[in-house]
């Protein structure tokens, strides 16, 4: 009779532990980041308004009212393997400005990068995929100027087909590129398979 009680206790303990783990697992399942509508659409180019290019000045803050982003910026470059650096994961609310490129407002494409999520949940660029053409991006620079950009494209690209030229390539006007991760999460590599890229042109 005593053995029966012990087994019954063990079964109850297993059930309680199982229920607890299932509950924890369900709460930890992260929301999938929003994906751009035009994921397969070809990249579009838009005529830029005639604005005088600004001198170089580091950006310090990015604001995107349409998706509630307001984040400080730090400088990033490339790691030892030549890949684009990203801000440290222990600061998921911070975005990075690609320092070797132009600054926002100069002629050419300025590049910002931010995490889509972190071990703690969504990160600074989680909602980037929700942006639509016409949405506004504001960049505050160290020279106290605020540069406004208008989104004209939001697209997802497989990381192994990253559009280097569209992102870092030269341009006749002041452009802005925002990069984060997206698409399917590959548990094997622990990485998302795509990059979501927002293309914007200076509007004011």
């Amino acid at each position: 009779m005593r053995a029966y009680q012990v087994i019954r206790f063990l079964i109850a303990a297993l059930a309680v532990a199982g229920l607890a783990l299932v509950g924890t697992g369900l709460t930890r399942l992260p929301a999938r980041p929003p994906q751009p509508d035009g994921a397969t659409a070809p990249h579009r180019t838009v005529p830029a308004p005639h604005l005088s290019p600004l001198p170089r000045a580091a950006p310090v803050e990015v604001r995107i009212p349409a998706v509630g982003i307001s984040a400080p910026l730090i400088s990033v470059a490339a790691d030892a393997a030549g890949a684009l650096e990203v801000p440290p994961l222990d600061r998921p609310g911070v975005a990075g400005w690609y320092r070797p490129g132009v600054s926002p407002g100069e002629t050419g494409n300025a590049v910002l990068v931010g995490h889509v999520d972190s071990p703690g949940g969504p990160a600074v660029f989680f909602h980037l995929g929700r942006l639509r053409p016409g949405d506004t991006i504001e960049i505050v620079r160290t020279d106290a100027r605020m540069v406004r950009f208008a989104v004209h494209d939001v697209e997802a690209y497989p990381k192994d087909r990253f559009p280097t030229d569209l992102v870092y390539g030269p341009g006749d006007a002041a452009g802005l590129r925002l990069i984060t991760c997206g698409g399917r999460f590959d548990r094997g590599t622990g990485e998302y398979v795509d990059n979501v890229i927002v293309f914007a042109t200076r509007a004011a």
Binding site: L14, A17, T24, A81
Partner: peptide, 29 residues
Amino acid sequence: TPIGGAEAGGRDDDGAGTLATGATLLATA
């Protein structure tokens, strides 16, 4: 330019492992 895209995803556990362990324990019970 840098090589390739950006590794800008930071989650380390998507909860699926915990969920699977819990389900196994429940099934055993």
